[in-house]
Design a protein around this nucleic acid. Structure first.
Lengths: 207, 207
DNA sequence: TATACATAAATGAACGTTCATTCTTTTTTT
DNA sequence: AAAAAAAGAATGAACGTTCATTTATGTATA
């Protein structure tokens, strides 16, 4: 339970510095979790190690999170949210479907290939029972703008009338695979690769 | 160390039944590992639970595998091998690139969508630090026939001259995503979906 | 302003539990 | 009877979590 934090801090008039310190600590914990889970896996990322990496005592974690599962769930949701915020930042409803898709696709590629840590963590969460089902469902909601764009595309006859899962599998998800390969040093994605990849993505979903 | 098993069993002339029993036990352990890791994740799949599910004592695991890491590595390699054996079973070098790709693709789809347990386990292994790097590298080798087919396709000008990673990302890997979604009950892949998916796969790699 | 009081944040040590692994004994096989 | 395989109980280490205490911060009183 860390509700008391917010309430008391805002209820009374308190210095900004103090609030910042709490946020910093919370962020340090989330960052450490992501880092350790990425390198060692959930099973080899003990609370003691997370605490040490974040520069706090193990006990302090429980001031910010209920337990380890909650810590991982929250890390997942925050990163997922940051990811989609980034993905849709330059998109607007008024764009054509074609243009909108390219804008979103390139932002996603940008995120996956540059913010490796966060993207890798998401890939792990999406492919294992690491985060619980409610959190996973919550995370999916953030993709709404993309689904809406596809809906529009289908109505306009620009995008194949196939299931959203197929569209995602062929147009977006491949980026996850490329990111993982790049992260492992198996391949390096450059500008022209990306253009090829975008063409393949669009080819596979356009009418 | 489980070398003694093989040596003594073949050195002396021993009943087939006995050998079979050992193999059965080993397989039961691998199966249990896959099942538990799929449902609970590596971190919640203790040796005691694996032993119980396989119907043996915890100590017996160590007659067949060095330790937990070895058990998981071996499970990964056996499943990966079964997967690729299945994938390439009906393929022959004499087929055209076009035909060969469809044959392989459909076998992979078949495996991923029907042998869910095994496929899901592979997806977890491929996306987490669950198996060690040597085993992962070993596992990749099994994909050789597919890479050779692509090489041929590029030479003949039938397949886009882009990196193998891009080809895999767009033509094969999407099936993993669909499998996971189907497994989670998010969507059901039917025959016509599959045909769409194949078309998208081929569209994205063909010249 | 100085002092005492109150509250919240943070800690290191300790808890009970569970884990992977080993040891000793029993069972099975030859 | 000897040897191998399997079992169950035991073990130390490591885990997530909690506890008792200290430190830092804010408030009220004089």
């Amino acid at each position: 339970m860390n509700v008391h934090l917010c309430i008391s801090l805002w209820g009374n008039s308190i210095t900004m510095a103090k609030l910042q310190k709490s946020i910093d600590k919370r962020n340090a914990l989330l960052k450490a979790t992501i880092n350790l889970v990425n390198n060692d896996g959930f099973h080899a990322a003990p609370m003691s190690k997370i605490a040490k990496m974040a520069g706090v005592s193990p006990a302090t974690i429980y001031l910010y999170f209920e337990n380890k599962q909650d810590l991982v769930n929250k890390a997942y949701l925050e990163v997922k949210s940051a990811f989609t915020d980034y993905a849709f930042a330059t998109y607007s409803d008024e764009m054509s479907v074609n243009e909108g898709f390219e804008v979103i696709w390139r932002r996603i590629a940008d995120f996956k290939l540059n913010q490796c840590e966060e993207a890798l963590f998401l890939a792990q969460c999406d492919n294992t029972p690491m985060v619980d089902e409610p959190s996973r469902k919550e995370g999916i909601k953030h993709l709404q703008p993309l689904l809406a764009l596809w809906e529009r595309g289908k109505k306009e006859g620009v995008i194949k009338p196939i299931s959203d899962y197929l569209l995602y599998a062929y147009a977006i998800n491949p980026l996850s695979f490329l990111m993982i390969m790049q992260q492992r040093g198996a391949c390096a994605i450059n500008r022209s690769h990306l253009d090829e990849a975008y063409k393949a993505a669009w080819d596979s979903i356009k009418m």
